[in-house]
Nucleic acid binder design. Structure first.
Lengths: 142, 142
DNA sequence: TCAACAGTTTAGAATTATTATAATGTATAT
DNA sequence: ATATACATTATAATAATTCTAAACTGTTGA
C-alpha cells in the first residue's frame, strides 16, 4: 500500500520531518482498520518485527512523545508502572481488564455524558475521563 | 493522644503485626481530621520528620502496599511516573490540578452517578473512576 | 517468663522504565 | 549540491520501585 505518501504529508503538516523511522512508526500505528492501545514495549516489539534494521529505543520514546505532543497519540494512565498509548485521540473512556491488562475503548453510547457540578476557581477543565476496571466474574475480585 | 491502641487493634484485625513502623505510619496517615493524598516520597518525608530514628525506604514501600492490599489505602493512577495514594478508600472521583500536581477529592454530589451500558461478557465491574484534569484558565492549556 | 519461630525491617544491590548526552547521520531549503 | 538544523543512535544517567539476605522483633506456646 502506498499510504506512505499520506504519512509524509501528515508529518509535514504538523512540522515533523518525515524520516524513515517516523514513517515506519506511522505505518505500524495507523495502517490498520481500528485504533488500538499499546505500551512502548509493545511498539518496540512490533517495530523490530517489521523492520530490517533495528530501531533505537530512545527513538521510539522520542517519537512517541513527539506524536503525543502533536495530538497523534493519547497517553492513558491506568497503572503507575506502565504508560499506555492510544491511537484513538478523540475523547473517550476505557475499560481496563485487570486479568489480561488489556484496554478496551468505550463507545460514546456506552456511558452517559458526565456532568460536573464542582468548579475549581481559576481552573478550567482539560479533560474528563472514566476508567472502568473489570475482572473475571468468578475468581478473585481485586 | 492514645489512639495507638486503636491502630494496634486495627492492624491485628486484618492480620498485620503491629510493629513500631506500622503504628507510626498509621499515626501519620490516619491521625488527622481529613483524608488526604500522598506519594511515597511525600510519606517518606513526613515520616522522617516525625520519627527519631530513620525508616527504610523499602519498609515504606512494603507497608504502603500491605495497607493497600488490606484496604487501608487506595492507589490512584494519574501519572505514569508517580504513584498517588489516598487515605479515603471509599469510591469517589478526583480532580487533578495539572499545574500544581495536586489531587482534589470530588464529593458524591459533584458528579452524577455514572451509568455504564456496555457489558464485557464474563467480567464484572470492579470500579468506575472519573479523573477530571484541570489547569489554570489563562495560561497554557495542556 | 522465655525460647523459638515466623513475619518484619533494613541497607544496599538489582531491576525496570524512562530520559539525557554527545557523536553521527539525514532531510530540507537555498 | 551543500550547509544547517533537526533526528537518530548507543550508551550513560536517572528515578521509581522491588529484591535480597541478614539482623531483628512480635507472637505463641511451653
Amino acid at each position: 500500500m502506498p499510504k506512505n505518501c499520506n504519512f509524509i504529508e501528515k508529518l509535514r503538516e504538523v512540522g515533523l520531518r518525515p524520516t524513515k523511522q517516523r514513517i515506519k512508526m506511522c505505518e505500524v500505528l495507523y495502517n490498520r482498520e481500528k485504533t488500538f492501545h499499546f505500551t512502548i514495549n509493545d511498539l518496540v516489539k512490533m517495530l523490530s518485527e517489521e523492520m530490517s534494521q533495528k530501531i533505537s529505543l530512545a527513538t521510539v520514546y522520542n517519537t512517541v512523545h513527539a506524536f503525543e505532543k502533536k495530538g497523534y497519540l493519547k497517553e492513558i494512565s491506568i497503572d503507575s508502572h506502565k504508560s499506555y498509548f492510544d491511537t484513538n485521540t478523540s475523547a473517550h473512556h476505557h475499560f481496563f481488564d485487570e486479568d489480561t491488562h488489556e484496554l478496551i475503548d468505550c463507545d460514546e453510547s456506552d456511558i452517559d455524558k458526565i456532568n460536573i457540578r464542582k468548579n475549581i476557581t481559576g481552573k478550567k477543565i482539560n479533560s474528563v475521563e472514566v476508567l472502568v476496571r473489570v475482572a473475571s466474574d468468578n475468581q478473585n475480585q481485586k
